[in-house]
């Protein structure tokens, strides 16, 4: 049940362009251990700008 809720939550976030923050942290830890990752707020703002900046071709009719 908690797995289902977790999936739903991630789905809702990705629908509005927010990928998983924990996955981002994991990626940074594994591949760029020297770099400090963005904090949660910076990550949120970065993804918001990426989704809505207009360079993604928008959404469908």
């Amino acid at each position: 049940m908690s797995h289902l809720l977790h999936t739903l939550r991630r789905m809702m976030h990705l629908m509005v362009g927010q990928p998983d923050y924990d996955a981002y942290l994991r990626h940074m830890r594994h591949h760029h251990p020297g770099h400090a990752p963005m904090d949660r707020t910076a990550f949120f703002r970065n993804r918001q700008e990426a989704r809505y900046g207009g360079k993604n071709g928008g959404k469908c009719c």
Partner: peptide, 14 residues
Amino acid sequence: GLDYVATDRTVLFG
């Protein structure tokens, strides 16, 4: 971890 993220298929379907 930002634009290119391997995503669970159910999540991506949504």
